[in-house]
Write a protein that binds this DNA or RNA. Structure first.
Lengths: 141, 141
DNA sequence: TTGGTTTGGTTCGATGTCGAACCGTAAGGC
DNA sequence: GCCTTACGGTTCGACATCGAACCAAACCAA
């Protein structure tokens, strides 16, 4: 029964994908960034300035984790905090020009990752795999 | 195209599986153990005393990580080190009686995890999913 | 035999992540 | 208008994990 390997395989896929992301980031001059930092920037590209709380749920991390992730992005000059005029508790996280300069790279990395992951697998098998994974993820939820 | 979600889904499966393992370990009185600790004990159950190097490759972690994982297991009384008569560099890691007392729990957790993950998915779909994941993992390797 | 290389393990520092406790501000009930 | 509750963020301590540097024992070649 090879079905015992699901969890291990899922972990392996995640780890290798992360390794590829980190390597590509470094290769393109964005050294020191982890996949979570990339995920944050992608959200900021798509949606503009966002409160940390929203970012946390978007990338699936806890809010205190976001505090340190954002601190690093800020220190490296990728994001800036601006106050929310509507709610003085929230600080809106906005991408800087430097972050915008990397936008294309992030999009390319995303495409490259998917291309490499899927390889020559036909579309119907891809869909089936995603559906199956969704099922397993739901079952574990 | 929902196929963009593969990586995220794989991560989710891994995280939820890990959460379930940790919760079950705690529920059964083995609090403070992470999935990696469980993976080590499972290997020791199956194969008896093993050098750290071998354990590292078996559970897919680096050797310096093993050092700290074993240190914890040793501090909690689950494993003991014994010298290897054939090679004085290696210290063989052996499960203690306390570890053996948890063996059934680990096996139950393993079964429970798989049962919950697969749910009602029919066997052929399970096989297809594993095959697909293997393909993706290989593509990323 | 001896000196260089390989190999098993540890140490050190860094990092992403979390839970728990905490602080200030907003919102809602009375 | 107060007081309680909810909520956004930070701080603190803990932990698994890694890379790099290191040590000591084993292996090997000349």
């Amino acid at each position: 029964m090879s079905t015992e390997r699901v969890i291990h395989l899922a972990s392996q896929v995640r780890e290798r994908a992360n390794a590829l992301i980190v390597a590509e980031l470094e290769r393109r001059g964005a050294a020191g960034l982890a996949p979570s930092h990339g995920a944050i920037l992608v959200q900021l590209y798509r949606q503009g300035p966002l409160p940390m709380n929203r970012l946390a749920s978007l990338i699936g991390r806890k809010k205190n984790t976001l505090t340190s992730l954002i601190a690093k992005l800020e220190a490296l000059g990728y994001v800036a905090r601006q106050p929310d005029p509507k709610d003085s508790r929230v600080s809106l996280i906005a991408p800087t020009d430097q972050a915008r300069r990397f936008r294309r790279d992030f999009e390319e990395i995303s495409r490259l990752l998917l291309d490499k992951a899927w390889g020559a697998m036909p579309p119907d098998q891809r869909e089936a795999l995603v559906r199956g994974l969704e099922q397993v993820a739901n079952n574990l939820g």
